[in-house]
Design a protein around this nucleic acid. Structure first.
Lengths: 225, 225
DNA sequence: CCTTGATCTGATGCATACAAGGAATGCTAA
DNA sequence: TTAGCATTCCTTGTATGCATCAGATCAAGG
């Protein structure tokens, strides 16, 4: 079959969207699909419930959960705080491996923005933020952050958001400012540059969702920087 | 028997310390104690593992986990960030029920400090921080915060910390500054007052742990404000 | 036609039996 | 005496059967 544990495969089904929101994740069906018994499937489903990805209705079933607008706002507020913390911590660490990765990452971002490749940029954005959090050298922070990002179905949101006009370049320069603040070992500046970046990203993501609900592609007329 | 679900009862055993670090939480023994089968016990243990309270060694057993010094530092860093976020959000909410609770709480704190009742003050401290987070009106924040606090074995740490000379009064005035910043709807001031308070608390807690390792009660000679 | 009720299906929740592996213990040999 | 090893015990991991209950379906009455 596929790779990875049952938990990972199930989580991927939810995060990637191959199991759409509202869909019933029946223990028996999944057990047959994974060729195991209900017990390990059940354990994995409970874990996903703890991660906020599915909703278990007792005696009824486990369903893929779709975050409400309210929850997305709450998650972005948390994201802002946690990434800000990470940037500040990283700035205090001095010259570490993650810093070099960030430099290379921003350089790569410049290149793909030149080429206008929004999808490649989305991948680099993901790596940038991931490196930021990893570089904070705080395992607990990384764990909490990972929970957040799963619930935000990060890739798709980021990809859609970056399709907004002007957002691509704005995001790049924001990353540049974050890196500069970290380079200068100014923890406070790094924190606030990061928080500002996340806030901007949140606004853009909100717009992207609104446009999506309008029905389909993002329009050419944008009203945000 | 007792009240609450199996999960809550098990968690309480770990957090309260009635099951000391390193102790084996055997599924069979717990199942007999709770008068259920291994299955629900096992589910609860897995949940506690995800909360970071126990460590599951495959094919060996589930053991009560003791946070390392490193982890405690990491958790306090997160606590500082999350409580700061909460205070800032609360400051932006205007006159809400939680704000009135905080006012009453600080007033009560003054009274018990006058009376010199450190134990009663510890309870009020717990309520103050809990109200702060609740008042942020962010469910996800509250959930992540709850995870943190469980791992910190908050009650005991706070109680020990407040026993340090001078810490009682310092904590009270810090709470006062936090409340004042929230009252003035200054989100940034509220955030930093809270972060400063948590940082002070962390330093005091570190001292308390060091003294504890010296062997027993906190000495009368303190070297922190 | 709409509402209301019983029934029936299918899902989870729990209990239990069996399989598999790690750790301690005691035995043997050097 | 001690090092090495086999064995035994005790633990979790998995599979499966039964009990229970939410929700759908269908029929009967207004």
């Amino acid at each position: 079959m596929q790779e990875g544990t049952i938990l990972e495969r199930l989580r991927d089904m939810v995060v990637s969207g191959s199991a759409p929101p509202g869909e019933l994740l029946g223990e028996i069906a999944l057990a047959q699909e994974f060729e195991v018994s209900r017990t390990p499937v059940r354990e994995a489903l409970k874990q996903l419930e703890r991660e906020g990805l599915v909703e278990v209705r007792p005696r009824v079933g486990t369903f893929v959960r779709k975050p409400t607008e309210r929850e997305i706002l709450e998650l972005f507020q948390l994201k802002e705080s946690l990434e800000g913390l990470a940037a500040g911590l990283l700035a205090q660490r001095g010259e570490v491996a993650e810093l070099r990765i960030l430099r290379q990452n921003v350089a790569d971002e410049s290149a793909v923005v030149e080429a206008g490749d929004a999808r490649a940029y989305a991948t680099l954005v993901h790596e940038f933020h991931h490196t930021l959090v990893t570089g904070a050298d705080n395992q607990k922070l990384a764990e909490h952050y990972a929970l957040l990002m799963n619930q935000l179905a990060y890739h798709r949101i980021v990809t859609q958001t970056l399709a907004l006009p002007g957002r691509l370049g704005a995001s790049l320069s924001e990353h540049g400012r974050i890196l500069a603040a970290i380079e200068s070992k100014d923890a406070l500046a790094a924190e606030f540059a990061t928080r500002n970046h996340v806030a901007q990203s949140r606004q853009a993501a909100t717009l992207a969702r609104i446009h999506e609900h309008d029905g389909g592609a993002v329009p050419a007329t944008g009203d945000q920087a």
